[in-house]
Design a protein around this nucleic acid. Structure first.
Length: 702
RNA sequence: GGCGGAGUAGCUCAGUUGGUCAGAGCAGGGGAAUCAUAAUCCUCGUGUCGGGGGUUCAAAUCCCUCCUCCGCUACCA
C-alpha cells in the first residue's frame, strides 16, 4: 500500500486500536469506540501524505477465554482461532483496514512480553509478594474476585461478589466474605491458599509518569481528568501475574503455572504486531523506524474502559524496560456506544447480527451513521430510526442525489463529457472559494479527533453542491446560455471530485464510487487531501453512467428490524431460562428466619390489572394501573421483557400494597407486583383458577 | 461509598477562556424550482438554557445548594 510512501514534511504515525478480546464477536459498540475513528484517522493521514501504519490484533489470553472454551468443550486455542476469524471477517465487512492484524499467541509476542517483564524485574520495577487467595478445589484454580459469591459482612446480602456488594456498595475483601462459594461450579468450601505473585511497582514509576503526563496538554479532557484523579489518589502496585495455564509464562525458575496477566501483555501486542508487519514485508527491522523513532507519533484509539491501562500502566511498562521504545503520543479514548437505549449484550439478544446486517446494508451506511454520532464526549447510541434518517436523508438525498442529478444532466445534454469552462460568474467564484475552504476545515476537525463534526462538515460540501446547482439553474441556462450551463456542470463535477476525496475516509466505498463515475485515474486514496479542491477535469473527458449509490430504506424495513431486535431479545431471554435445567442453576439458600410479627407487617392484596403500557425509554418497566378494591394504584413493574401490557390486562395479581412508594423513570410506583424469578427469568404471580377469580379485588393475602 | 459526565427548542444535540450564546440538524408550517433516488433550495422557533440562591455592569457559561439520569470505580480482558 501507500503506507510507507516517503514524505519529509508530514509526521510519522503509528496508529493502533485496542486489541479485541478473542472471546466472542465484536459489535458496533467496539467499532464506534476504537476502530472506526482510527480507520478514518488513518485514511485521512494517508491522504495528507503522512507516513502511517495502522496496527492491531486479537488479544487471546486470560481466564475468560479458558472458561468459555471449557463451556464450549474446545481448547482455548480453538476458541481463539474461531473468534480471530470472526473478528477479521467483521473488520473486512466494516472496511476497517489494518496494515497488520496479529494475534498475541504469535511466538515472538511471547518473547517480547517475557523480555519486557525481565527488564522490569532487573530494573527494580517489579516486586514479588505472597498473598492469600480463594482457591476452588473443584475447579482446581485460584478464583478471580468476581467469581466468588458469598454473604456480605457489611449488610448481610447473600449475593455479594468478591469485589463489591451490589446491595450496599461496599468494597469487599474476598477473604472476609461469609460462606464464599465458587460462581463457576456453584460449590461452597473454598480454601484460602497462599500464592506468590509479581507486581508492577507503580508507586515507584509514579513520579516519572506524572512528569510525562504533565506534558500531554493536548490530550482529550475526559482522558486527562480521569487519570489526573487516579494519580492524585496514589497508585498501588498491581499484580501482573496470575495462576493460570493460558497465557505468557512467567520466565523464571519456580514460576510454573504462573502466567503474565493479559492486560500486561496485550499492549505489548502493538509492538509485536508491528514486528510481524515488518517480517511480512521482508524488512525485519522496519518496525524500528517507528518504535525507535522519537519523532513518530503513537496514537492509541481505545474505549474509555481502557484508559488506565494505556495512560498509566502501559507507559509505565515502556519506561521501565530497556529498549528505546517510544511512549504514546496521544490516547483519544471514546465513550461507549449503545444500542437503542441499552448496552450491547450478546447473552440477552440485545445486539445486531452482523452477518445479517451486512447482507442487507452497506458498510458506508453504518460507518456514516456511527461517525455522525460517535461517542466522543459522552455515551451515544445506535438507533434504527436514526440509521434510516442518516442513510435516506443525508447519504441518499444529499450526497447520492447530488451525484445523480449532475451526472444525468451531463449525459443527457452534454453527451456524457465534461463541458468547457467559461468565464466564472460571481456565484461560481463564491462557490469555488467555499470549496477551497473544506479540506482545511474538515482536516482540522479530524486532527482533533472530532469525527462527528468532521462528518457533518464533509456533508456540508455536498449541501454546497446542491445549493450551487439550484442557484445556477443549468436547466434554464441550457436554453439561454449553453456555455454558462456547461461551465456550471463542470464546477459541479469538480465539487464531486473534491467530495470523493474528502468523504473517502468516512465512506470509502462511496468515495471510490464517485471517483469511478468521474472516470478519474487511480482511487481517492491516491489523491492529496490538501489539493482536493483543485482537481482538474479535462474538457471532453468522458464520465461514467450515473450510479444509484444508496437505495432508500423503507419504514417497513426499519420497523421490521426493530421488531426483530425486540423479538430476539425476548426469545433469547426465554431461551436462557430453558437451559436452566441443563446447567444446574444455583438455587439461592433460604434467608434467615423471621418472626410472624415481621411477616404480618407485609400487606399483600389481590389486585386486578386495569391497564398497562410500556414506560418510554425503559426496556424493563411496565406502568400498570391496578385496582385494589378500595383504591387504584400505579405500579411500575420490571417485567417488560417478559410480558406485554396486553397479556396482563384483566389478570389478577398479588401486590405488596404497603411498600413505600418509589420513583422510577420519573413516575411513582405505589407498591410492588409479586413475581417469581431466578437468574434472568421471571413469572408474575397471577390468580386465574376459578375459585380465586371470584375473590374481590383488595382481598388480603397471607 | 468515591470519582466523573449529563440535564439547552417536539426529537438528537453544538455552545473554547462570562458580554450578537440563545444556536444547528431532524420533525412540523409556508414558499421556490423541476436537472435528480418526490430528491433539492429558501423561509418560519414567545425555549423559565433541571430547580433555588449567590458573584458581576453582564452568566446557559463562575460559586453554593438541591433534584433527576447515566457512566466509571483500574485484582472481570
Amino acid at each position: 500500500m501507500s503506507s510507507t510512501s516517503e514524505s519529509n514534511t508530514a509526521p510519522r504515525y503509528l496508529v493502533t486500536s485496542a486489541l479485541p478480546y478473542a472471546n466472542g464477536p465484536i459489535h458496533f459498540g467496539h467499532i464506534a469506540g476504537a476502530y472506526l475513528p482510527a480507520d478514518i484517522f488513518v485514511r485521512f493521514l494517508r491522504l495528507k501524505k503522512a507516513n502511517v501504519i495502522y496496527i492491531c490484533g486479537t488479544d487471546e489470553y486470560g481466564a475468560a477465554i479458558t472458561l468459555n472454551a471449557r463451556k464450549e468443550g474446545i481448547s482455548p486455542k480453538e476458541l481463539t482461532d474461531k473468534y480471530h476469524r470472526v473478528i477479521v471477517g467483521l473488520f473486512e465487512k466494516m472496511q476497517v483496514e489494518f496494515d497488520n492484524f496479529s494475534r498475541t499467541t504469535w511466538p515472538r509476542h511471547i518473547e517480547n512480553t517475557q523480555r519486557i517483564f525481565l527488564d522490569l524485574l532487573k530494573n527494580g520495577y517489579v516486586l514479588e509478594k505472597t498473598s492469600q487467595q480463594q482457591f476452588c478445589t473443584h475447579c482446581n484454580m485460584f478464583l478471580p474476585d468476581r467469581y466468588i459469591v458469598g454473604t456480605c459482612y457489611n449488610c448481610g446480602h447473600e449475593q455479594a461478589r468478591g469485589d463489591e456488594c451490589p446491595a450496599c456498595g461496599t468494597w469487599i475483601d474476598p477473604l472476609k466474605l461469609i460462606n464464599p462459594s465458587c460462581k463457576m461450579c456453584g460449590r461452597a468450601g473454598l480454601e484460602v491458599r497462599e500464592t506468590r505473585h509479581w507486581y508492577l511497582d507503580l508507586p515507584k514509576l509514579s513520579p516519572k509518569l506524572k512528569e510525562w503526563l504533565g506534558e500531554k496538554t493536548w490530550w482529550k479532557k475526559n482522558v486527562l481528568n480521569f487519570i489526573q484523579n487516579m494519580i492524585d489518589q496514589g497508585l498501588d502496585a498491581r499484580p501482573i501475574t496470575r495462576d493460570l495455564d493460558w497465557g505468557v509464562p512467567v520466565p523464571l525458575e519456580g514460576a510454573e503455572g504462573k502466567v503474565l496477566y493479559v492486560w500486561f501483555d496485550a499492549p505489548i501486542g502493538y509492538l509485536s504486531s508491528t514486528m510481524e508487519w515488518s517480517e511480512k514485508r521482508g524488512e525485519p527491522n522496519l518496525w524500528q523506524d517507528y518504535w525507535y523513532n522519537s519523532e513518530c507519533r503513537m496514537v492509541h484509539f481505545i474505549g474509555k474502559d481502557n484508559i488506565p491501562f494505556h495512560t498509566i500502566v502501559w507507559p509505565g511498562v515502556l519506561m521501565g524496560q530497556d529498549q528505546p521504545l517510544i511512549l504514546p503520543y496521544d490516547v483519544p479514548a471514546n465513550e461507549f456506544y449503545n444500542l437503542e437505549g441499552a448496552k450491547f449484550n450478546t447473552s440477552t439478544g440485545w445486539y445486531i447480527d452482523v452477518e445479517d446486517f451486512f447482507s442487507k446494508y452497506q458498510s458506508d451506511s453504518i460507518r456514516y451513521c456511527i461517525a455522525r454520532n460517535a461517542p466522543e464526549n459522552s455515551d451515544s447510541e445506535f438507533a434504527w430510526r436514526d440509521f434510516q434518517a442518516k442513510h435516506n436523508g443525508e447519504l441518499a438525498d444529499i450526497y447520492g442525489n447530488l451525484a445523480a442529478r449532475t451526472f444525468k444532466f451531463i449525459h443527457r445534454y452534454f453527451d456524457g463529457r465534461i463541458p468547457a469552462a467559461a468565464e466564472p460568474t460571481a456565484l461560481d467564484r463564491e462557490t469555488l472559494a467555499k470549496m477551497a475552504e473544506f479540506p482545511e476545515r474538515v482536516g482540522h476537525l479530524l486532527l482533533d479527533y472530532r469525527v462527528r463534526e468532521a462528518a457533518q462538515e464533509f456533508m456540508n460540501l455536498a449541501r454546497l453542491g446542491n445549493r450551487y446547482i439550484d442557484s445556477s439553474e443549468p436547466w434554464k441556462t441550457r436554453k439561454t446560455d449553453p456555455e454558462q450551463c456547461g461551465s456550471s456542470l463542470r464546477i459541479a463535477c469538480r465539487l464531486l471530485a473534491e467530495l470523493a476525496v474528502l468523504s473517502y475516509p468516512f465512506i470509502p466505498q462511496s468515495g471510490t464510487a464517485l471517483w469511478r463515475q468521474l472516470r478519474l485515474d487511480g482511487t481517492p486514496q491516491n489523491q492529496s487531501w490538501d489539493d482536493a479542491a483543485e482537481i482538474e477535469l479535462p474538457q471532453d473527458h468522458p464520465i461514467g453512467e450515473a450510479e444509484i449509490m444508496f437505495n432508500k430504506l423503507t419504514d417497513e424495513q426499519i420497523e421490521a428490524e426493530i421488531e426483530a431486535l425486540k423479538a430476539r431479545s425476548a426469545a433469547q431471554t426465554g431461551a436462557s431460562t430453558e437451559s436452566h435445567d441443563a446447567k444446574s442453576i444455583e438455587i439461592p439458600p433460604i434467608k434467615a428466619t423471621i418472626t410472624y410479627d415481621e411477616f404480618a407487617k407485609l400487606d399483600m392484596r389481590v389486585g386486578e390489572i386495569l391497564a398497562g403500557e410500556n414506560v418510554p425509554k425503559s426496556n424493563k418497566l411496565l406502568r400498570l394501573e391496578i385496582d385494589l378494591g378500595c383504591e387504584k394504584r400505579q405500579i411500575l413493574a420490571g417485567i417488560a421483557q417478559f410480558y406485554t401490557p396486553d397479556q396482563l390486562v384483566g389478570r389478577k395479581v398479588i401486590v405488596l400494597a404497603n411498600l413505600a412508594p418509589r420513583k422510577l423513570m420519573g413516575m411513582e410506583s405505589q407498591g410492588m407486583l409479586l413475581a417469581a424469578s431466578l437468574d434472568s427469568d421471571l413469572a408474575a404471580l397471577t390468580i386465574d383458577n376459578d375459585r380465586w377469580a371470584t375473590l374481590p379485588n383488595g382481598s388480603p393475602v397471607s
